[in-house]
Structure formats: structure tokens, C-alpha cells
Simulated assay, not measured.
Amino acid sequence: MQHKYYYSLKLKHLECWSNFTSSNYSDFLIDDISSIGVLKATRIAIVSGDGQKKSIKNAIDRDKSILDYNIENILLGNSKLKIIFVDMLQKGDNTILGRLRNFNVVLINAKIYNGIEEYQFITTQDIANKIFSELNTSNSIKILDFNYQKINNNVILRAISRNVTDILLTDKQKKIISRARELGYFEVPRKVDLDDIAEEFGVTKMAASILLRIVIKKLLNII
């Protein structure tokens, strides 16, 4: 029996609706079912602003492989962040997800972020090579990254939790919280202080403090 590995695949699918989403759009897959060549997928997006629902609709309307769809606000109110469910029926062979399912991979994550599709899954090297070969020969698919690592609990847990942080945090917020952790800001005792973080990012001590507090507050709100 061949060993299985954890794979991470990032790509641009030029003919897919994901390629037409706005630069700040992100979502992740929560359910999918395939039947007779048709893929039914349900995605959840946490977005800011009132125009995102229309933007999602415009992107989906440009994808000719989508047979039907429904976009629904789940939580309404004055919150800056809105939770949207996106249900769609799509020709399975036109989707990366459908192709991965055909190879019987164990899917861990599937998400869209800034127009880039990202998948994490578990499979053997032989199957991974076949996946790469099939996708790489398509003119409508541009593979940006395809790597693997050995499977362990930390790898899987980080992959699952990354869905939420990728959607809730901006690129700048992710960078500052990650760098603060790398430098030892959250160690006891601390290896660096706010002055070091501020210098690293070229901002004032107050700005660094506010950025970190915003990130921590966002993360605490989902616990």
C-alpha cells in the first residue's frame, strides 16, 4: 500500500466564476454532492459591504458551466460582516472539485481567495501526479503552487482552522499576527515587545498595538 500525503494545490481557473470574483472575495466549501455529471456545491462567504451579493451574482453569471444557483444572506443587520450562502449546480467536469472527486481524494479544504482556488487533500503520490498532469494540460487552468508534506495532527488542524482566519483577517492582519508569533511576542516571557513589531512593519507603536488588538478581538469573537 502506498503512503498518503497531505497536498496543497493553488490555481487560477480562467473560465470559472472564481476568476471573476472581486479582489477581496473569499469563501470556503461546506458541502458538495455529485450525481450524473452534475456537482451541487454549497459555499459560505463572510463578506463586508453591501455590494458583495451583486458582485457574486455577476461572477457566477459569467460561468457558462453553472446550471443554477442561489445566493442567500444568512445573517442580516448592521454588522460590517455579512454571512452569505452560495448554492450552485454545475457541470462536474468543468470544476476542479469535480475532477478531484473523480480521483477519490480525501478533501480537507476547498476555498476561493482573491480569485485563487485552493484545495487541501490527502492522496498518494501516484494519484497526485495524475492530478497535476491532467490540470497542467488545460489551457484554462494555471497552477500556482502544488506541494505536499507528511500527514500529522498539526497539519490537519491548521488546515481546518485556516478557513476562518483567511476569511476574517485581511492580508496585513494575517502578516502581523503571524510575524508577532514568529518573533516570540506571545511567548512567556516575551522575546520582543511592541516597539520591535512596530519597527518590523514600519508603523508606530500605537498602530501595531491596534492591529494586534483587532486581530485578537476577531479571533476571540468566534470562540
Rank of each mutant, 00 (worst) to 15 (best):
Q2G: 11
Y6N: 10
L11D: 02
L11R: 07
F20S: 11
T21L: 03
S22D: 12
S23C: 04
D27W: 05
F28H: 12
I30G: 02
S35L: 07
S35V: 13
G37P: 01
G37R: 03
V38I: 15
T42L: 09
K53G: 02
K54Y: 03
I56N: 00
D63K: 08
K64L: 09
L67Y: 11
Y69K: 04
E72N: 10
L75P: 04
K80I: 13
K82Q: 14
M88Y: 10
G92K: 13
G92H: 02
D93A: 06
T95W: 02
L100C: 06
R101C: 03
F103P: 05
V106P: 01
V106H: 05
V106R: 06
N109H: 03
Y113N: 04
N114V: 00
E117V: 00
I122R: 07
I131D: 04
S133V: 03
L135I: 02
S140E: 15
S140M: 07
I141H: 05
I143N: 07
D145S: 15
F146C: 13
N147Y: 08
N153Y: 10
V155S: 10
I156S: 09
L157M: 11
I160V: 13
N163L: 00
K175P: 00
I176W: 01
R181V: 08
G184L: 03
Y185C: 06
E187M: 07
V188W: 04
K191P: 15
D195C: 02
I197V: 13
G202F: 06
T204W: 04
K205S: 12
K205V: 15
M206N: 13
A208R: 09
I214G: 08
I214W: 02
I214N: 15
V215T: 14
L219N: 05
L220D: 08
L220I: 11
N221K: 12
N221A: 15
I222G: 09
I223K: 14
